[in-house]
Amino acid sequence: MTGRRLQYAGLAVLVALPFVGVPEYYMHILVLILIWGFVYTAWAIMGRFGLVSLGHGAFLGIGAYTVALAWNLLGLTPWLGIPLGVGLAVLVAVVIGYPCFRFRVVGHYFALVTLALGEVVRLTIVALRDHTGGSLGLTPNRYGEGTSLYALQFADKEVFYVIALLLWLAGIWIWRRVDASMARFAMDALSEDEDAAASVGVHVTAQKLRITMLSAALTALGGGVYAQYLLYVNPGTVSGIGVSLQIVFAAIAGGMFTALGPTVGAMITIVLAETLRIAIGTEVIGLDTTIYGVMLILFIIFLPKGVLGGLIELYERRTAGGAGAMAGKREVGGGA
């Protein structure tokens, strides 16, 4: 199959990149795309089932701040700090998710609850400014020369590129595992009609909780790695409404129903953000969030499957045109 061959070729290019001397700035952009691509994929794992969280910044922030605080305050290695952050995020996901799912808080109401959660985490970080540095952000202490496996700090961008690549690959792999599972059908079913799904034996609350826990865990993992990469965390960039909306926008823009869609979303948002930063500078604070908001609305209306999803559909329609398979089925449906 050509698709498979294309995948291997793409993977080979990605693996080879750090060895061909990519300029530092572009290496940095690539690492960002991989880490954010992973985070957006984590969001899409639940978002594609109508579980639209507007508060994934909460999990990202918990992941990022836990590792940084554990390191600075307790001297705990990120190898333990990151799992700790993941565990905390899962705990928060359960505490928020269980009552929501148990009592059928769905759709807009669920989105609002998560929106609040993202802000609560941001405000908590700001309020604990004695430890977290408040809105000024937090810098994990440098360890020795700046490169240490124990401290998960690396002076070379190439090393982080490899870490980010592995992370991203793991994300895609998990996305595909979920996509190929029976749970995917159960989730698709209950996202349309919870009563009907429950009547055929699907434990609706448990299914939703599981996918939410998975998504929260992966997002916090992304947050932890992001903190280690930048060695700087800021409540605005890892939690709160701004980043939460950015996650939603990117995943939807790229396409949340295909494995690589959220990564395409990462490319779009990061290139957009960098372009804006270079073109207008940083003085117009909040401009990117505004642009995300407007584009989000446009995407939801005109391209609900996202850029990649839309392209794939277009391609499939082109190729299926000859066989007439899809077109034929559509007509039967229309006639009935």
Binding site: M182, F185, A189, V200, G201, V202
Partner: peptide, 8 residues
């Protein structure tokens, strides 16, 4: 299939 898998 969802019924068959989850219904028993």
């Amino acid at each position: 299939a969802v019924s068959a898998f989850y219904g028993q």
